[in-house]
Design a protein around this nucleic acid. Structure first.
Lengths: 185, 185
DNA sequence: GTGTGATTGTTGCTTGCGCAACTATATGCC
DNA sequence: GGCATATAGTTGCGCAAGCAACAATCACAC
């Protein structure tokens, strides 16, 4: 649809993706599947536990952290949310008594979110719903082998996207760098 | 984390997913990868074309439809958005002159969104950015074989999640039904 | 036809999120 | 020590999306 090779820049790019490239369909399927599944999971959590998927994710992150506490920053990274988003999210959870805020001893600016006992209980309850959903909406449709492929790919994507607030994309994401022999296994 | 087998119900469920099940990590990776990639794509589109990823998706759907027009409803299905969401989205695109609304001849209630010439042009321009992004953030990290796995899996997920506003999940998503030999290939 | 119920799209309201601006603290340079 | 810069978290504001309610139309029974 595009790709008229006109004034487009990159010097040595072999043949850039076009709108009809078959490699586009996996991305679309990915996008759609995510939308459908995450909406379902969110709906279920809301209906049965008055809780958002994002809130649930935050609780999980906390529960798995040493001492069940985490800096706001790391929480933001973990659930891929803006800083302000995390502030508000923790506001809500705190209002519900599921987490508490505490000052960070080593850093005067810092705040930590701590999972409360009640928060842990609510998480346990919500987990039933959530895990059932994942089984039904996600795992139930994916073959075990493909599960490995998904994990491998998504890990690589995450690593790569995170690993550039400058290079690799900035430098054109050249076809060579794009081809994934960069990853170890 | 949960799964203490206490008062939990299902009569014959073999062994339900627990919070430490290794099959959980692919889902998490999936979720994270989606968040990271779609945010990037959205950022790029906003920065370079003052356009949302959702808006872009709508334009693509229209461009690929016969006569470049689509009922609001089908558009909603295609991009996985609520009806009201589509109404507002089309409002915006119409205000920008990228689509036009037209009455549906066969159904007095219905409205169609039609891609305008200008909309098609804007889409073409935006495609450059978008396709470059997909290459860099998504394809660049995924091996071709895994691409097939992703497409296969996500298609299956979509099909299954869409295919039940009742059965299959309602019926417990039993392990047998969950194991995917249900799919043809 | 007429009435009943379903369906299509829009609107009011609320919610969750991101950006930019701000405060407070930390870090490094001199 | 004192100053400049960077970083952590919060707040104001705007935007996009969902739900519930609504109006208009369709589809079907009779």
């Amino acid at each position: 649809m595009t790709e008229t090779t006109e004034t487009y820049a990159p010097p040595e790019r072999r043949r850039s993706l076009t709108a009809r490239d078959p490699r586009l369909t996996p991305w679309r399927a990915f996008l759609t599947a995510h939308a459908l599944v995450s909406r379902r999971l969110d709906d279920d959590l809301r209906a049965e536990h008055q809780m958002t998927l994002a809130e649930y994710s935050a609780l999980v992150q906390l529960a798995e952290s040493p001492d069940r506490r985490l800096r706001m920053n790391q929480l933001a990274d973990g659930i891929v949310l803006s800083r302000s988003g995390v502030t508000r999210l923790i506001d809500r959870l705190e209002a519900d008594g599921l987490v508490a805020r505490s000052h960070c001893p080593s850093d005067g600016r810092g705040a930590e979110a701590v999972l409360t006992e009640q928060g842990l209980n609510r998480l346990r309850l919500a987990s039933r719903t959530h895990l059932r959903g994942i089984e039904a909406y996600f795992l139930g449709s994916v073959q075990p082998v493909d599960l490995e492929a998904i994990e491998r790919s998504c890990d690589a994507i995450g690593q790569r996207v995170r690993g550039d607030d400058r290079a690799a994309i900035e430098m054109g994401g050249s076809a060579d760098a794009s081809t994934p022999e960069s990853r170890p296994a």
